[in-house]
Design a protein around this nucleic acid. Sequence first.
DNA 1: AATCCATCATAGACGCCATCTATGGTTTTC
DNA 2: GAAAACCATAGATGGCGTCTATGATGGATT
Lengths: 295, 295
Amino acid sequence: MMDLYLLRYFLAVVETGSFTRAADRVFVTQPTLSAGIKKLESQVGQALFERSNRRVFLTDAGTRFLPRAKAILHECNLAMQALEETATAPVLRLGVLTTLSNRAVGELLASYKRSEPRVTVEVYDGTEQELTNRLDDRSLDYALSIFRGEGKEKALPLFEERYVFILPSGHRLASRPAVGAAELAEDYMVVRSRCEVLSETSRYFTDQNVRPRLVYRTPNDSRAIAMVAAGIGGTVVPESLVDERVKAVPLRGFDYKRRLALFRPRYQLAASTTQLAADFERHVENSWGVTGITT
Amino acid sequence: MMDLYLLRYFLAVVETGSFTRAADRVFVTQPTLSAGIKKLESQVGQALFERSNRRVFLTDAGTRFLPRAKAILHECNLAMQALEETATAPVLRLGVLTTLSNRAVGELLASYKRSEPRVTVEVYDGTEQELTNRLDDRSLDYALSIFRGEGKEKALPLFEERYVFILPSGHRLASRPAVGAAELAEDYMVVRSRCEVLSETSRYFTDQNVRPRLVYRTPNDSRAIAMVAAGIGGTVVPESLVDERVKAVPLRGFDYKRRLALFRPRYQLAASTTQLAADFERHVENSWGVTGITT
DNA sequence: AATCCATCATAGACGCCATCTATGGTTTTC
DNA sequence: GAAAACCATAGATGGCGTCTATGATGGATT
């Protein structure tokens, strides 16, 4: 395992082109730096420099190593920065499922910000699996995702919503009270590839011998809705994603719903953080509680 | 500046929940590990653990630090891996401009692979600016990008190509020898947001008082072409991106062209690599030379 | 051709450091 | 109340990072 102070010696040599000048730059003597480079080369198992008549050049291995050495030191700087930020203001790292409404999440956090201006909220997108993994490895504190029956120590249940079918506003079926699979047989379908009920949707159509024409597929929900608004086709979305640019109609016989939840930290909170966490949980429950969105 | 061996102590404590068990895991005695954690906390300036009645918990700072510590050690592993790969087979890191044809680049590299099976080519996408930056910081050896008059020591000029307008195969204008701006006034336009002649294209239409209806915008050229093939609209592409799913027609009065180049390493190659590099440059020149693509 | 200069490598000295053993202090368990 | 478990401290010790002194080599200058 290499030593970081040796990476500093290495980069100083690359930058100056000389052991002697590099030694000056990192405030050691030339023999110390020479021995340090030798030690680094022994740690990594390959020569990093060719010494050639008072000049040094990077070897092929040294060239490969250079961006890696920079990345390591960059990560160290990020680590120190993260700690400095922790020291100055509380940070709450929130994961948000990609299929949640950006508008609704924005409003939730804006109102939290108004009541707790000191707290910094860092927001990270992800799929259900990605958010679960990051809660586990503690790179997230909380996550807004789909409730799947987890116990109270893991998740705070929130509101439930249905899935609806959205169409361009001028579509011939847009003002119907409901539509069935057969009425969509000739229409185009936009596919939200990260939709949690993608396979259920597919089965809904195939069970009625309907093959909607897939014209577009994207993991980006905003883009999918934009395509619908532009008249390209229709798609299934959770109700909270509907906006004024499209028309929502229920799909007859498609009764799927999802309940959201706020997933709690999977580690012991520090004593200094428990009050902040309790306040945040209360805010989310007040805004997105089981009775529905109230902000 | 922190020490990597102390990060290993830190992660061992997190994973085991105990200084004693962590010490066993990293093969030191418990007082050594205790002193090591104390030293790390002094290096980073904050307590990382709360010691509480024979148990340890991460502090808020410790929780923040944990993913950073993992990232640092992960980068170290990547660095060691990169060096091991260098030791076993030559690696050539090639940047490719995002607007180059994936098919043509694939064929170029497939034929190079046939003549040089030992060499690993790592391919990275980027914009012109990104590729220039990475040549400068030596994280790329070569790049295929647009020639802008650079000298021979920096760039090997390759073939030149025109920009054409592509339409769905069944479009009413698809079989014309050329089209003008006015004829496209009622049509939809797909926008390739990373196109090098985006502003020239916009000016071409506005100079003739035509406002094409922008229906779609993407940085992904494959997606843009797919939208054209699907019948959504048309777009401007370099000639080499045209395939059998669309029809290409010249835009009357739109004479823009681009010349490609192979950009050379911006560092002194190791003696062991100069032959490999010369062979690669010759292959690219033979395939994509100024007379045009020959493979 | 001889001398000087610049630069990297090696040798030995030395203070500091990482790690050990021994032990203290505290809390939990039996 | 005794034993066990676990973290922190003290002192000893071998190894390490860095120093000064100097050697080796090749290019520049005279």
